[in-house]
Nucleic acid binder design. Structure first.
Lengths: 203, 203, 203, 203
DNA sequence: GATGAATGAGCATTCATTCAT
DNA sequence: GATGAATGAATGCTCATTCAT
């Protein structure tokens, strides 16, 4: 087994253990025994327990970044709606494929320590900023109504996080396409029925 | 100092310490020294470190439950919109008044262990269910468009959590009224500008 | 058992263990089991293994300093010779009474780490400087021949260290008074027999 | 590079590393990386870390033995004094040429473990015995005054050790010839000025 | 012979909890 | 009830040595 393969297998073992037990309850012993290596071998590949945890997080956040493409608002297929749907779909698919890592990101990495908290905040900030820019571009094109783009970006991010958490981790079982559609329709048009939509919202 | 007062002062000390350092980094020593009591005294009031943490969480979730009133859709002041705004406002005010507890709930309690995770999930489930019921009532009255009420409830919950977290913990500075308005308008009417609202959302 | 007594009993246990096995081979487990306390208790009294070792050394060096009195060269009993003999005697008695600490000082503390080495060097420097000053005073009074007082001070220090080490640690069995006499006669008059004393030394 | 040359280069690397860091702080990794060989190769040349350390010590003590020649008291050049001076000079030159090994011998090898301690003691014993024999021969010829030859041998050995340690390791800067002269004059004639030499010493 | 990846025994330290006073 | 000294289980990490290639 070459160096890279072994490294990956340790990462996989760590992902599973961290995901199952959380950072503190996960012992290095758990990781190495699951990976089928000796204790010392672990430290040939990673400087310490913390480092492998961070690497798992970092590489997962990169994959999430990669799943989110900037929406091109110019007409023509795919439409803006379809591009948004594709983004949501890619992130959702990634989450469903990597439930363990989602658990790490949304549960076990939270509140571990100030440094990691800052890192997570920066990650979500970056995502929120991307959403915010999309909203701002939409506003420039008069597609999006006047609003506090930052705040709505955070709201959209929160909605997405909760749905992904529920779907990928907490056993909320729902049809992929259904989730994408509902999330987008909600994001774009809110919850109100037609006759009241404008009226009440303005109230 | 009578038993109840001492108990409360230990709880307050624990809240501050947990909020500052998180569950694991908070030592019983930190709590008792802040409370000005002896180490052993702590165990006269709480069975263990875990118990006081849970009690802080539990009593805070009760206060949140209390802040959320069932919306009465029958006409007449306050309007539905105002009732919703009042709910959001009360939760937000509570969060701003108890930033330490918000940090516990949204950060330090997350991922601590399976039991606590289940408890948190149940708490959010309950909130989501209340939102879901409101949506369902709205649907029955044709105020709310046809949708997956559960899913939208989760989305709304997530949006609220994120905004509260940012506002109460992560230093996102925003005007209280502004936040309530934007959150409600977004929830009710989404992000799209009028001419596109129905059209695109249906697409 | 009050705090001070327990502290002393731990110090005594540590002294014995360090003396028997040396710093590295001495395990905290050895110390606490000899002291009849729990592992954690050790850390209530000393910050770490290193700290207790240093404290043993420091307090012993203080006792050695105290054993060495400045020699008063003015005539009258006790004579200079007797004062010197008293100094040597006190240091020797201390060494014989605390063979374990002598072993620490002359064996186990040597080469442990740069910080400790510097500390030891400073200790011996101080002793050498005291001897050097005595020699210089003797030179001023024409009692001591012209010489490099620093160098002779180091030579005298080394002679003393070796004899103490042999006597207190390495099983060199010798009469106390004999050792004091021989050491002083050697220090004062060297090894040569009378007729050759001046002649050869000048050669 | 033939076997012997490689062996020597590993020894040289080990000498430097041990001398810099001491036995415990010196890692096999440090030695092999300095020697430019693989970790496993080290064990092809030496059974273990301890063995290479001992070999360094052993070969150095042999060189010291070789530097010390038995003093021939029969008249004729070189005189006894010159022969003694030559001995001291050779040892001193060796020490100055091999400061690293001196550090090993006088610092890092001390207190490592009982076996090594015994070895060092035996080495110094041998040197002391040589000095003792010289003194005894001197006594037989009435050159050396009556004294406990063993004790004075130890004192002389200690003086020499301290001066060599200071000069070769601890940065005590002194002229080679000066040191030899002072040490010999002190050894032969002590510290007292002429008029007091016999008188006081006898007191 | 040379390599260097793998091994795993070994250990200082922390801290929640207990209990004698 | 209050105290705080004592407890001891628990764990991340190091590093000398081995051995398959």
């Amino acid at each position: 087994m070459d160096r890279e393969a072994r490294r990956r297998s340790i990462l996989a073992a760590a992902r599973d253990v961290f995901s199952d037990k959380g950072y503190h309850a996960a012992k290095v012993e758990d990781i190495v025994s699951r990976a089928g290596i000796a204790r010392g071998t672990f430290y040939l590949y990673f400087t310490d327990k913390r480092a492998i945890f961070e690497e798992l997080l970092d590489s997962f956040t990169v994959r999430i970044y990669d799943a989110v493409k900037v929406v091109d608002p110019r007409e023509g297929p795919p439409s803006v709606f379809d591009q948004l749907a594709a983004n949501v779909g890619r992130v959702l698919d990634l989450a469903l494929a990597e439930r363990g890592l989602v658990k790490l990101l949304l549960t076990h990495a939270v509140g571990l320590d100030p440094t990691l908290d800052a890192k997570l905040l920066a990650f979500y900030d970056e995502l929120a900023t991307q959403i915010e820019r999309s909203l701002a571009r939409g506003q420039a094109m008069r597609l999006v109504r006047p609003c506090d783009a930052r705040m709505l970006a955070l709201a959209l991010l929160g909605a997405m996080k909760e749905l992904i958490y529920r779907t990928a981790v907490a056993g909320y079982d729902v049809d992929r396409q259904r989730l994408i559609d509902e999330l987008l329709r909600f994001s774009l048009g809110g919850v109100l029925a037609e006759p009241y939509a404008r009226h009440t919202a303005v109230a």
